[in-house]
């Protein structure tokens, strides 16, 4: 009886083999020939390191990770910023910065990355965001793959993520140096706009007037750049405003992070009823690269500098 079952399974296995023998050019993303033990000698961490991530989970490391998978563009940018580009073995398909990240094998969509591709990459660290808490994180935990959630909600949070990744990867000094640099750039912007009259700004995420509200890093950026986010008083993080609300709030600057949806300054000027809005009257409609402004990674400081320039061109060149 048992042998019967076994031979049946054997036949199945043979069929499996026969099928894959004819495998078409596979997407072939992932080095499979390198089991974890074949990686270069890990720099031993003296004692196991236990950290707490942005979701409050505790994760313990016994050695610095050498094979990192990043499941979100922000995570990719954090890792590359700390010089961990060589350790990154796979990224999600939206990771396009720095440019060399695009050439890394893909694990699929950020929204629902492919578990098989991640495990196939043989990671000893997977960087994820809070989007992945419900599905990916439990699956990785079940396989004892160290997984760290990085979901900064403001610029301080980005610093904290950089320092955390620095500790985990044994690059703490580099992380501290980078954070010091970023702090200095932020301080320069803040000094430059200090004392200036705050400028009312509307940050348009999409043409149906979704915007960033309180508790988001965009809100943090606008405030530090010497602006007043007209959605700062909203009750949710990413509220949808009505055109009436926007017109009543009379933003002096409109930042368009929805050029991907075909929204240009001309399109805003053409909107019925918007012609009396200060930003339209004074022609202060500015397009911003949403990749920079929507990812809680180190380029958030680039976003801060650009937004400060948009709001206070006289003070921030």
């Amino acid at each position: 009886m048992r042998s019967g079952v076994r031979s049946l399974l054997l036949v199945l296995a043979l069929l499996v083999g026969a099928c894959t023998g004819a495998a078409p050019a596979s997407p072939s993303l992932v080095p499979t020939a390198a089991p974890p033990s074949a990686t270069p000698t890990p720099t031993a961490v003296a004692t196991p390191l236990t950290i707490h991530d942005d979701a409050g989970r505790s994760v313990t490391f016994t050695a610095a990770p050498k094979r990192i998978v990043t499941a979100a563009p922000s995570a990719t940018e954090l890792a590359f910023a700390l010089g961990l580009g060589d350790e990154v073995v796979a990224v999600d398909k939206y990771s396009n910065y720095p440019p060399e990240a695009s050439s890394k094998p893909s694990i699929g969509s950020y929204i629902d990355p492919d578990l098989e591709s991640i495990v196939g990459a043989g990671p000893d660290l997977v960087l994820v965001t809070d989007v992945h808490l419900a599905k990916l994180v439990p699956a990785l935990e079940a396989r004892q793959i160290p997984t760290v959630v990085m979901s900064a909600k403001d610029i301080e949070g980005v610093y904290a993520d950089l320092l955390l990744l620095g500790r985990i990867s044994g690059q703490l000094e580099q992380a501290e140096a980078l954070v010091d640099q970023l702090r200095a750039r932020v301080a320069r912007v803040e000094q430059a706009v200090a004392g200036a009259t705050p400028v009312r700004a509307f940050y348009e995420i999409d043409p149906t007037l979704y915007t960033a509200g309180p508790g988001t890093f965009i809100d943090d950026v606008i405030r530090r750049a010497g602006g007043i986010n007209i959605a700062a008083g909203a009750t949710t993080a990413y509220p949808q405003l009505s055109a009436e609300e926007v017109i009543r709030a009379d933003p002096e600057v409109i930042i368009l992070a929805d050029q991907g949806a075909g929204v240009s300054p001309d399109a805003v000027r053409a909107r019925q009823g918007w012609s009396k809005v200060s930003a339209v009257v004074n022609n202060r409609l500015v397009v911003l690269d949403p990749d920079i402004a929507s990812r809680p990674g180190p380029r958030i400081v680039d976003a801060l500098e650009q937004v400060a320039h948009i709001l206070h061109p006289d003070r921030v060149p």
Binding site: A13, L14, V16, G17, A18, C19, T20, G21, A23, S26, P27, S28, L29, V30, T32, G108, D114, E116, S117, V119, G120
Partner: peptide, 13 residues
Amino acid sequence: GFGRVPISAADQL
């Protein structure tokens, strides 16, 4: 038999 991570027929067997 097929997936994003290629596994050769021999290995699968």
